[in-house]
């Protein structure tokens, strides 16, 4: 069994209004910075998972992301192995 680090990024689904992202974009725009078409805010989680293989760790992280870390009505997620 070894330790694996998995990074989970949770973001709002496309089409779900992100008032925080809009507010952040508004500030960036107000600073005179140009070219920012859109800002969407999300959450990042770093998980350290003990498992036989990296694929098993990734699968465990995906299960946690699906059941706990994200709300499937609003959000979607991506899990990736860091180490």
């Amino acid at each position: 069994m070894t330790k694996h680090k998995v990074r989970v990024i949770v973001t709002l689904k496309n089409g779900v209004l992100d008032p925080q992202g809009l507010a952040i974009k508004h500030v960036i725009d107000s600073l005179g910075k140009t070219g920012f078409e859109e800002v969407r805010q999300g959450k990042m989680f770093d998980l350290v998972v003990t498992a036989e293989t990296s694929q098993a760790a990734l699968a465990a992280a995906q299960d946690a992301a699906k059941t706990v870390l994200s709300n499937p009505i609003l959000e979607t997620f991506v899990c990736s192995l860091v180490s």
Partner: peptide
């Protein structure tokens, strides 16, 4: 809502 006993979810207030 989180439990799924009711349908839907809550977002941050539109006014923030």
């Amino acid at each position: 809502l989180e439990c799924g006993l009711l349908d839907g979810a809550m977002l941050r207030n539109a006014s923030l």
